Amino acid sequence: MFFTPRRLLTALLGAISPVAAFTNSIRNPGGSDPQIVYTDGYYYLMSTTWSNVQIARATTIEGLKTATRKTVYSSSEASRCCNVWAPETHYLGGAWYIYFSAGNANNLDGQNVHVLKGGATPWDDYTYVAQLTSEWSIDGTIVRFNGWGNYLATSCFHGVANQSICFQKLGDDNVSVTGSIGVISQPTNSWEQSGTPVNEGPAALYINGKTYVAYSANYCWTPDYCIATLEWDGTTDPLSASAWTKSDGCLFKGGVNGHYGTGHNAFFQSPDGSQTWNVYHATSNSAGACDDSRYTMVQLLNTNADGSLNFGTPVALNIDSAEPA
């Protein structure tokens, strides 16, 4: 067959498979406190309607927008029925666990971290196991340390005036904590005190041989809610504040592309493990918001030539981003 230049170009283009892409936002409204994990060919997105814990799965990030949501927890028990926040799923010892914050309906005084136990995949059914913390705590996540074990990280008021990042050793059963509580970061800098001094939303990050804890600074009802980091020194007891070095200000913040209050994030790996992705929430309200107007965003996390973290800036909505590799 004879190919004219136009036919040749059409044939060549047709032979090239299009690159799969997604656009932000991923969950809007109701996209607060997001976490995504990738395992066994699926992305799993954790969410809540403030009275339950839900999980959705899809084979692509774009697919999460329309994926069926499966409710894995709701309760009429007064002490944990309501104000359900920040669910996260973690694979520990051959099973998936969900850690989440919950309390009573009347106020926020009873907030604590609770745990569900699931099965071999995040899609399996979960059973309520226990209240994990014994004093006011929210935003529970798991941080792993070689040689030290696993720790529960939360935002709490343990002996301090303001919401701070706290650690406690996770029990071998993954549904209890042991030993003392260590306050590893307090909102002592001016850039952590917009609205009211706050450190919350911890998230573990392991990259370039280093262990970080990202966290959200400032009051969530302000546009200044942002992401900062703590870097572990690699040798000192993780419960000690001296083991951690705080970033010099926010590393990721709003005021760009119509996004404000960019925070409460988590990280996940691409299918081939070569990329680290940042999932976070934002609001279009320029005054800041801490309600269901927040939406879920996903974008690639980069590093600079010297190995330091480069979060970039919040990506514009409806811009095509290549699906994780």
Results as ranks from 00 to 15, higher is better:
Y126I: 00
R7M: 11
A266G: 14
T68N: 09
F268R: 05
S176N: 03
A322H: 13
T127N: 14
A204W: 08
Q168H: 05
A214C: 03
A305Q: 14
Y225K: 05
V72S: 04
G41R: 11
P324L: 02
Q186F: 09
N150K: 15
P202Q: 04
Q54D: 15
F100S: 01
D224F: 01
S32M: 10
A67V: 00
A20F: 10
Y43T: 09
P5H: 08
A228H: 07
S74N: 15
F311A: 01
P238E: 01
N265C: 10
Q275H: 13
G201L: 12
Y128T: 05
T4C: 02
V256L: 04
H281G: 09
A11D: 00
R57L: 03
I165S: 12
N104G: 15
Q168P: 06
V143D: 03
W244C: 05
R57V: 00
T178P: 06
S79M: 08
G119N: 11
Q168T: 10
K65E: 07
Q163C: 09
S17E: 11
C220E: 01
H281N: 12
V53G: 02
A130Q: 05
S270M: 08
G209L: 10
A325V: 15
T154F: 08
Q131W: 00
G209W: 15
D237E: 07
V53I: 14
A15S: 15
L45E: 04
S240T: 07
K65A: 08
N146H: 12
N106F: 07
P223M: 08
N28V: 11
G261W: 06
N28R: 15
S137Y: 09
H158W: 03
T89I: 11
W148D: 01
S286Q: 11
K246T: 09
S284V: 06
